[in-house]
Design a protein around this nucleic acid. Sequence first.
DNA 1: GTCCAGGTGAGTG
DNA 2: CACTCACATGGA
Length: 290
Amino acid sequence: MGTSIIIEDDFDLKKIQISGQCFRVKECEPNVFRFITGENVVYIRRAKESAEGDGSASADETSKRFEISCSEDIWKKVWEPYFDMGRNYADICRRECGKHDFTDRAIECGRGLRILKQDKWEMLISFIISQRKSIPAISSAVEAVSRKFGTRLYADGFTKDLDEELYAFPTAEQMASATLDDLKECGLGYRAPYVLDAIRKVLGGELDLDGIEALDDEALFEKLMEVHGVGMKVSNCVCLFAYARMGRAPVDVWIARAIDDEFGGVNPFPEYGGNAGIIQQYIFYYMKNR
DNA sequence: GTCCAGGTGAGTG
DNA sequence: CACTCACATGGA
C-alpha cells in the first residue's frame, strides 16, 4: 500500500461490501478490500494501530488510519466523492436518532455504512439485473457482464499479486453489440431484453444519464422508469446509489417486511426527509444482519 | 431435488 | 385503482 490517510467519520469497509448497494467489491485477503469505479481500482485496509503509536494502540475497528493503494491525488479526485466523504454520517445518525426505536438499533448495528456514489450506467444495469436475484447471484451476473464486455484493468502494478484479472464495468458503447444470447450467457435470464432497452435508449440519446443529473428528485425518478424493466424500486436505487439522492428510500422485500413488522405498517421514511435513503440503508442492513 | 432471491409488466376484475 | 401471475437462473 502506497499511501496512508486519516478518515475521521464512520467508515466500515466490510459493512459497505455486504450492504447490497455494490456488487463488485471484494475482500481480496482478510481486511483488504478492492473497489472499482470507471477504470479506477483501489485497495484499502484499515491500519492495525492508531497513528499516534502512544502505546495504547486502538483496536482495528476504531483506528482512523487507512492504507490505500492509490496516490493521495487520485484518492481526493476519485475516491472521496465515491465514498461520499463530504458528508458526516456520524452527525446524521445523531440527528435522526430518537424517532423510532427500531431505527436507532439499526443505526447502531450499521454504524460505518455509507452511501456510495457509483457509476450511473453501472447502477442502472446492475439494479435491472438485481430483480428477483440474491445478492451473490447479482454479483456473479455483473461480474460476467464486466468480463465479457469491459476493459481489462491493471492497478498500480501491485494488483496482479493480490487478485485475479480485473475488468471495468462496460460502458453503454462497449455493450452496443450485445445480443440477447450474449446477455443470457451472463445469467441475466428474462432481464436480458430490459438491458437491451437500456442500451438502446442511452446510445440513441433518448436517455442522457449525465444530462438528467440536473433534474429534481421526482423528475429523475420518473425519467429512469421510462426504461423497460425499471420500476419504482430499481429507479430509487439508481437515484440513491448513483445520483446521491439521499431522500430516496427504495422499498424492496426486506424494507417492506420491516415496515410491516417493525413500524406497524406505516412507512417511516417520510419522517427522515432528505436522509430517508441513508436511514433505509441502515434498516436494510439491520434486517439482514441482526 | 426444492426453495427463494434488493421486482416488473401484463392481464384481469 | 388493487390484485394476480409468469418470468430465467443461480446459490443455499
